[in-house]
Amino acid sequence: MTDWQTFSLNPADYGLPSRDALRQLRIWDGHYHGFLGSDPLAQHAETMHYVERMGIERVFALEIGGSLEKPFAPTGIEAQQREILERDGHRVSGLVCVDPGEPEQSVEKMVNWIRQGPCVGIKYAGHGRHEFRVSHPKNDAIIRLAADLQAIIYVHTWLKVGGSPRTPGGSNLSGEATPMDLVTLAKRFPDVPFICGHTGGDWELGIRAIQSQPNIFLEFAGSDPHSGAVDLAVRELGAERIVWGGHGPSRSYATELSKVLDADLTHEQRLQILGGNLRRIAGPIFKKKGYKV
């Protein structure tokens, strides 16, 4: 049987934080894809071994009560997910996927899973089902409810290069938001915090896009690790506007942690980025639900 907490060589001998050091950073992972694959419950159980090994304190699962591709279709594991969120609530939290083109269904899902259920936030996926992105006014009903619930709002953003002429964002799917789309939305709700997922993929442009919109936080998960990326984000946005995501199991936790370890940060800044800022965003709804922060 695998001992997931034993290391045959000491990471500290290689200039890396040990598992204990990682645990002391109180890492909150805002981007967890454990409930995916052909057997989502088994995948979740396996992925949590790595979460535990890497000293991560809490994950926010993004596929609760529906998949990213079909957010309103029954998955058949809803009851088990509710059970996991209640039983393992000290380390697993849930976000539900919504759709800016389907505000009525989205609101119904939020009431069911957040107001009356265990979840704490919403996720917008990148999709090609229709042309309604988060910036469309149809989406405002969802945001108004999220604000009322004090729910976490995570928005997948990308800037895929392509099109003719080729431009960053020119290959995005029809409903896939860019950081600029998110800024358009965030301007209409200046008191509501938003998380700009993936930095827009092209972080040099994504950071610029959101720089002047202070209610947008930046998250780096789900893209290759580029040395210097977090340094730039801290210079332009401040460490207090960056949150961390692991994107497991499709991404390596090593990849996502390295982005922060690479940066020239104070210990206090690392604490902020790896968990402190997400605890600040999640604080109100956790308090309302009686969850421990």
């Binding site: 890396l16 090994r53 690790p225 390596s252 990849t255």
Partner: peptide, 13 residues
């Protein structure tokens, strides 16, 4: 180009 820490930490993951 990538942080050195990515491959290093991958060894221990």
């Amino acid at each position: 180009f990538f942080p050195l820490e990515a491959a290093l930490l991958r060894l221990f993951e």
